[in-house]
Nucleic acid binder design. Sequence first.
DNA 1: GTCTATATTGGGATAGAC
DNA 2: GTCTATCCCAATATAGAC
Lengths: 218, 218
Amino acid sequence: MSASALLSVTQPAPAIAPARRPSFREQQFAAREQAILTAVNRLLATKGYDLMTMDEVAGEVGIAKPSLYKHFVSKEQLAAVAMEKLLDRMLDVISAQPLTQAPIDSLKQVLRWALKAHLDGSMPLLPSTRSSLRAALVNHAPYFERLVKMTEAMGTWIEAAKADGSVSGTLPSEVVMYTLFARACDPTLEFLRETGQYTDEQIVELMVTTCFGGLASR
Amino acid sequence: MSASALLSVTQPAPAIAPARRPSFREQQFAAREQAILTAVNRLLATKGYDLMTMDEVAGEVGIAKPSLYKHFVSKEQLAAVAMEKLLDRMLDVISAQPLTQAPIDSLKQVLRWALKAHLDGSMPLLPSTRSSLRAALVNHAPYFERLVKMTEAMGTWIEAAKADGSVSGTLPSEVVMYTLFARACDPTLEFLRETGQYTDEQIVELMVTTCFGGLASR
DNA sequence: GTCTATATTGGGATAGAC
DNA sequence: GTCTATCCCAATATAGAC
């Protein structure tokens, strides 16, 4: 499969055009759902799945808790959909990288985006082995599809970067991939922010530098 | 303060010698407490604080739940003491490094130890900003003392390694320190283990290599 | 569809017998 | 000090009125 095919990640148009435009009620419903997902995103980023409660979500949105269950059947599904939307945003960033760009720079740009999202509180934790959310995610097909798509795109760049000598050829590609994924939820970010000594931009660049350059002198 | 002073981290002997040796009952009590801490350590490493239940701890040790509360007043304190013991083990490793060793090698050895402990299930998560355990830890003086001691020892090595040119002089020491701490709870470890393609030793070396050498070619 | 009020479960902590 | 049985609160999920 070619790199360009892997990088065309925009969603296909719906097969059937809607017969009429959504009613006011439907628009309101959709807007509320979006507000819920925004709140969930923020809460997942700040507290994580296990510590996030449905009461908090409802309170943040300004609706009653039972209303949440009209939109999402469970807390697990709610979080899974929020993660799905996150991957959509990440796939948008991936497909926005120019094909002429050096693959290592594409990798760095995606990492920068993820780190910025983490710092501004819009990056839910990636699912660690420990989270009770993890099992729900792999069983949520829309999430899994996007994860595969993202993994393929990143894998293509990694292979290309190894081929052009910019990424170490001695490291297995999986190690490179997982190392990049893990940086998006690296607690170093929050530790550095807490010192109050660096701007968000400086923190992002310090993370990118240590990730690609390592701690040792060159 | 000199490096050797910072590195003498062994505990001072008790000021008052015990008048008699512990009774059988006391020995039994101490052994049970040790068994509890071992179980907690394992559970913190596999599930994390929030997902660990007191029922599980009791079940693992083979005692009733109320007995736990004869040893520790709360789940928070139980975890805090387990973390305190973990730092003791880490301080032992730190003080075991020969003073003649290059400081970067001491840093690598401590990192290797932490990674191995993580892989064999005896490394509780370092407290992320999100964990509800975190507040309890900083208020637990014995933990905090050890944390300060460890930080000072690592800081001394980092400064020395920057001075001898083995660690990048352009990176702030805090960035180096937090980066090393974060590697001990890096999910990359578990991702790599799950592939089943590497031995634990290979995983440790891959992590040390990417941490100090980075992803980019040299 | 949204709310108030409630069922239900899981889990931290404790009372009281032995 | 250890157990059985229990309390109690928090949090997911739902029943039922409007």
